[in-house]
Design a protein around this nucleic acid. Sequence first.
DNA 1: GCCAACGTTGGC
DNA 2: GCCAACGTTGGC
Length: 158
Amino acid sequence: MAFWLLKSEPSEFSWNDLLQKPNRQEIWDGVRNYQARNYIRSMRPGDLALFYHSSIPEPAIMGIVRIISDPFPDPSQFDPRSPYYDPRSSRENPRWYSVFVQAIQTFYPPIERSELKKDHRLQTMELFRKGSRLSVMPVLAEHWQILTKYPYKLEELP
DNA sequence: GCCAACGTTGGC
DNA sequence: GCCAACGTTGGC
């Protein structure tokens, strides 16, 4: 099982948006970077990921999601009305991939980036590498162990 | 709003 | 293949 971090701008799709979806599941689509795409393609059901809010005054890890599908071609690349439409993509030759995710745990309070930066054990996270902009990135098991000890409340599924 | 870092595009 | 120009990301 592997660990990941998924970025989202809350104005686009927030943690709360995910919690309000049926069964707290949603497709993770719109990734349009090849390295991030490659990470998505290496995901497997059962992998876990941190859900991170970016591009806001206080960026933070909001919760944990489980990857609940195998990777599959991102449907939005074929949809001319989608902002993620890619005319160079075809169904025979898809460029971009998605997975389904399900929220399983909410950090309470959220783990703010400024808090993470105070933990010297976490400074080697990809998230803190200078110039790191990937919206999908792997998380080391040693970092995962540390992060999951932060306070959280379990979210019971309906 | 600023700006560094990075990715993509396209002329040559 | 090189690289300048441009667009985007995202913390601050």
